[in-house]
Computed example of a mutant assay.
Amino acid sequence: MGVFRSIAGWFSKRSFNWLGNSYFNYGSYVNDENILKSSDTFNLMKLISDQVALAEFVVEDVQTGKDSKDPRAAHALQVLECPNDYLTGFEFKKLLTNIYLLRGDVYPFYDGSQLHILNNAYSELTDAGIEKITVAGENVPRFMVRHIKNIGLNHLEGVGLLELAKETLEGVMNAEKALTDKYKKGGLMAFLLKLEAHLSPTNTTQTKTVKAILDQLEDIKDSGKTKMIPLGKGYEIEALESPVDDEKTLKYLSIYKKDLGKFFGLDKDLLDKLEEKDMEQAMMKLFTSCLKPIFKNVEEHLTILLFGKNSGLRLRFRHDRLDYVGMKTKTDIAYNLVRTSIAVPDDAREMLGFKRLNTEESSKLYISKDLVGLDRLEDVLKSTLKGGEDDG
């Protein structure tokens, strides 16, 4: 026990950051720090990680499927709400999701009171088929860490955007950088001074003329300013424009930026069209294609990390897809859920943003008369009236 305490203490004294190793290819770097400089990559990752971070954790009883009243559940939810001294619950979920998407592997670490995300963790399988995880050469006790993998074809390693889309990302980022740099520097326009005669350092007249021309060119600082430079015979000025072809670069970006969504399990074009037509459909598509698998994977690992195996408890994400539905649609949904006895009036009130009444009547299920077949309506009414007379 003392060994485990010392290891936990060793880990808790260290800061857990996620600045990772750089990946080098074709003369450019793609790493964790600059990956989000690509606007489309940032937009897609923000879309996914925000939805995960906005989802609420609940702990269910495996047997009943209802929210657990177990003290272990209450403690786990407190930890998840405030995982450590430097991250909130929202930030922890967002960080975990971003690492998962970028690297394909993320290592949450739990010392019994705080949750951290390990950096530079290394995993291997022993001959007995047991995963061994080390950080800086130190073994991490198995019950204190989980290895969440975006599983591909390897049983031990996940695959992330840095690996799957490295060449696409490099192309997109380099193209974006070329355009940005070009316009930062005023279009990279230079001037070429051409002389018919050879330059001679001993020709003072020639030297003075060249210097006067260069001084006037350097004096052009404001965009849109016109400068007239009279030139003598044998002197000519040509504009030397940037080798960056804007049209080709933009065409390249329009094609490959869309491809980035596919590495997240998203068809960005389809999602954009659905958003224009129906936000609810768009969010359902995002949930089914992308969020649901992430939820399931994280739920399973964190359940084992926080409660161990066969605890009878299960950690779940509760994600409200109705956030993107208009109030009129919400009202119709709430009405129909109560009408068909799928939900009680208090459920409908909560869905519409009102407080639950928590009365006996508001927590009952009701069957609407118009849900009874017309051929049975008279019999049902007579039965109800007869029951009322008997009660009297």
Rank of each mutant, 00 (worst) to 15 (best):
Pro201Asn: 09
Lys69Thr: 14
Leu164Val: 09
Asp379Phe: 07
Leu306Trp: 09
Glu378Phe: 02
Gln281Cys: 08
Ile148Gln: 06
Ala190Gly: 11
Asp127Cys: 02
Leu87Cys: 00
Lys382Asp: 14
Lys285Thr: 15
Asp320Arg: 12
Cys290Trp: 04
His301Pro: 00
Glu170Pro: 03
Asp390Asn: 08
Leu291Gly: 03
Phe143Lys: 11
Pro230Asp: 12
Leu274Gly: 05
Ile213Tyr: 06
Gly137Glu: 13
Leu305Ile: 09
Thr340Leu: 06
Tyr235Met: 10
Thr64Cys: 02
Leu164Glu: 12
Ser38Pro: 00
Arg318His: 13
Gly27Trp: 04
Gly158Asp: 11
Leu306His: 10
Leu195Tyr: 04
Leu322Asp: 10
Lys369His: 10
Leu270Ser: 10
Gly158Met: 10
Glu91Tyr: 02
Leu47Ser: 04
Asp127Leu: 07
Arg339Gly: 01
Ser123Phe: 04
Leu118Pro: 00
Thr126Ser: 15
Glu361Gly: 01
Val159Cys: 04
Phe287Ile: 03
Cys290Lys: 11
Val244Pro: 02
Thr126Gly: 09
Ala178Met: 11
Lys309Met: 13
Ala73Trp: 04
Lys149Phe: 00
Lys296Leu: 12
Gly312Gln: 12
Lys225Tyr: 05
Asp70Ile: 03
Ala348His: 00
Gly353Arg: 00
Thr168Ala: 07
Asn84Ser: 05
Asp272Met: 13
Phe109Asp: 03
Ser38Lys: 03
Lys386Asn: 14
Glu247Phe: 01
Ile294Glu: 11
Leu164Asn: 07
Gly353Met: 00
Arg349Asp: 03
Phe109Gln: 07
Gly20Leu: 05
Asp219Trp: 10
Lys94Asn: 09
Lys309Asp: 10
Tyr86Ser: 03
Val58Pro: 00
Asp246Trp: 05
Leu44Arg: 06
Lys94Arg: 14
Glu299Met: 03
Asp278Cys: 05
Gly137Thr: 06
Gly326Asp: 15
Pro243Leu: 09
Asp105Pro: 00
Leu271Gly: 04
Gln63Asn: 14
Met351Arg: 07
Met228Asp: 09
Ile148Asp: 08
Gly388Ala: 14
Asp375Asn: 14
Lys94Ser: 04
Ile117Gly: 03
Asp346Met: 01
Ser6Tyr: 12
Ser362Leu: 03
Ile255Pro: 01
Gly112Ile: 10
Met351Gly: 01
Met144Cys: 08
Phe90Met: 03
Ser15Ile: 12
Phe11Asn: 08
